[in-house]
Design a protein around this nucleic acid. Structure first.
Lengths: 133, 133
DNA sequence: TTGTATAGTCACCAAAAAGATACCACACGG
DNA sequence: CCGTGTGGTATCTTTTTGGTGACTATACAA
């Protein structure tokens, strides 16, 4: 699966395809953007922004531009005033949603695992208390 | 799959399980470390270091400690001198290797796609030249 | 005795990423 | 004429991340 020598693509450096993936869809916002666009289909700039209340305008613009140049997101500008710009996933972008889902699934699994561990610890703790008393 | 309200776990903040995943296995080095430990089984500190020639000692230590506290990596210290420390994936850690594989696969796909596009462009370009001549 | 290997830690510095703020053009509503 | 919404850009500051070099202890080899 991944003979890891240094490679170059579009000015990017990576040793392994997985690194390339993370460069494209990794980071704090991109997975979220892709997720929302995957769910909603098409969203205007401010619609997308309202979906992620804590993202700044700059970050959203920046991330969308990067996703666009990477061929993940399509940007449709309507020459109106006030401006109207719609964002959607490209065909390539839609191929990434299953990967996002995997990440989601694993996260949920980890979350559940951790929660169960904590429950165990808590149970252990209260058992200790009882036997000490 | 992911109702995205703010959640907390082990002092971490996230809106979506996928974000949690990226906090744990994201970043420049962690996927690589997991990948190598997954392939090799058990590695000593400097063995691992030699596998990733560009990582610094500080970073490797740091990332390994984080993976350890997140329950992904097991750290076995042999009380010898000179020191000997072995790293391996925990059971939980081994569950992440399929996810890493997905990322790898998608990256390879993207890589191939991009390369094909470039070939097309190049072909187009030389065709333009010919028709111009 | 000096050098090497082991697996680190610590203090400091540089670079990159992210965030805050102000500004733009223009139309519409009141 | 003033404020609002639209989709941005430009600039500055803060935060996070990554990297450098020095230092540790000890055993073994030359």
């Amino acid at each position: 699966m991944s003979e890891c020598g240094l490679k170059h693509l579009d000015g990017r450096e990576y040793y392994c395809a997985m690194e390339l993936t993370l460069q494209i869809i990794g980071g704090k916002w991109k997975p979220l953007i892709i997720h929302h666009l995957g769910q909603q289909g098409t969203l205007r700039f401010n619609e997308l922004r309202r979906t992620m209340p804590t993202i700044t305008q700059k970050m959203l613009t920046q991330q969308l531009r990067e996703l666009e140049t990477d061929g993940i997101v399509h940007r449709e500008v309507y020459p109106q005033v006030p401006p109207k710009v719609e964002y959607s996933l490209t065909a390539l972008g839609r191929t990434v949603t299953p990967v996002i889902s995997r990440l989601c699934e694993w996260g949920s699994m980890y979350e559940a695992e951790r929660l169960a561990e904590k429950q165990n610890e808590a149970a252990q703790h209260s058992a200790d208390k009882k036997s000490a008393a």
